[in-house]
Simulated scan of single mutants.
Amino acid sequence: MSQQDEQAPRVVIRDKRRIDPTSGAARVPAGDQPAGTAPEQGEQMSEHAHEMPADVADQPVDGVVVDDAARQLAERTEDLQRVTAEYANYRRRVERDRVLVVDQAAERFAGQLFPIVDDIERARDHGDLTGAFKVVADRVLGLLDGLGVTSFGAPGDPFDPALHEAVLHDTSPEVTEPTATTVLRPGFRRGDRVLRTAMVGVTDPESPAPAAAPVAGSTADDQPGAGPAAG
């Protein structure tokens, strides 16, 4: 050991507690001890008196703190993602319900206008849609247009059970398929949704469609029911 190391001051820790932590007995202050009496073990000056045990000092305290912080961060991130997904689903449900309520209200209101539109169309057929009555009729029809409601059903349309309500039937050689030849009441729809079917008279073909022509290159013997050729 060099002379400089010998002259360097040493750090001294003094235990001035009046009660011995080990035995629980009262201590006598160092100044009151008789001459020649050695200080108690707890009062001995040592630079190693308060050193931590080796097994405690070697524990990775910083690593434990970092791992716990990372775990808490992952939990908070998972909670935030779950709350965000729940809020997004809630917004979609609210928007879907709002659109559904608006559509239902529009369809109910349009349904109340259909009888008025029927009267307007009858007045138009009789040539009575003139003057102030025509102005009112145009405004009523404009309401349906604003709601996105359109009418359908015209003479000559192919009969569709999903769109037409057949109340009359007849036959004619002039049609090749069931056809709505008479429209007694127009139908209405909003987008792809049918609000009211059209009331029509249906005309069916007078005779069934002719049988398919024989395949080219086939002989009489190949046709069903053909007998043997005469000798």
Rank of each mutant, 00 (worst) to 15 (best):
D5W: 03
A8W: 12
A8V: 11
P9T: 06
V11G: 13
V12N: 12
I13H: 14
I13R: 12
R17L: 15
R18K: 13
R18L: 14
I19T: 11
D20C: 10
D20F: 00
T22Q: 10
T22F: 09
G24D: 11
A25C: 11
A25N: 13
A26C: 04
R27A: 13
V28N: 01
P29W: 04
P29M: 03
P29K: 03
A30L: 15
G31K: 15
D32Y: 11
Q33T: 08
P34F: 07
A35T: 15
A35F: 15
A38G: 04
A38H: 08
E43P: 01
E43W: 05
E43D: 15
E43M: 12
Q44N: 08
E51A: 10
M52P: 14
P53E: 10
A54W: 08
A54Q: 12
D55V: 05
D58N: 07
P60G: 04
V61F: 10
G63C: 04
V64L: 14
V66R: 09
D67I: 03
Q72F: 10
Q72S: 10
L73Y: 09
L73S: 13
R76L: 15
E78M: 12
L80P: 00
Q81L: 11
V83W: 14
T84M: 14
A88F: 01
N89Q: 13
Y90P: 00
V94R: 03
E95S: 07
V99I: 09
V101H: 06
V101T: 10
V102L: 14
D103N: 11
Q104V: 07
R108I: 06
A110D: 04
G111P: 01
G111Q: 12
L113G: 02
L113P: 01
F114Y: 05
P115D: 13
V117P: 00
I120Y: 05
E121S: 12
R124W: 07
D125L: 05
D125M: 08
D125G: 05
H126T: 07
G131T: 07
A132L: 13
F133H: 07
F133Q: 11
A137I: 03
L141W: 05
L141Y: 02
G142M: 06
G142Q: 03
G142C: 04
V149E: 03
T150S: 09
F152Y: 14
F152R: 02
A154K: 14
P155Q: 02
F159D: 00
F159A: 02
D160G: 04
P161W: 01
P161T: 00
A162G: 07
H164D: 03
V167T: 14
H169V: 10
D170K: 10
E177S: 07
E177G: 01
P178G: 01
P178E: 00
P178L: 00
P178R: 00
T179F: 02
T179G: 02
L184F: 13
L184G: 09
R185M: 09
R185P: 00
R185I: 02
F188I: 00
R193A: 10
V194G: 07
L195Y: 01
R196E: 00
T197K: 14
T197H: 08
T197D: 06
A198W: 05
V200H: 02
G201H: 15
G201W: 08
T203D: 12
D204M: 15
P205D: 08
P205A: 09
P208S: 08
P208K: 05
A209I: 06
A209G: 07
A211C: 06
A211V: 09
V215S: 13
D222W: 08
A226I: 08
G227E: 11
A229P: 08
G231E: 15
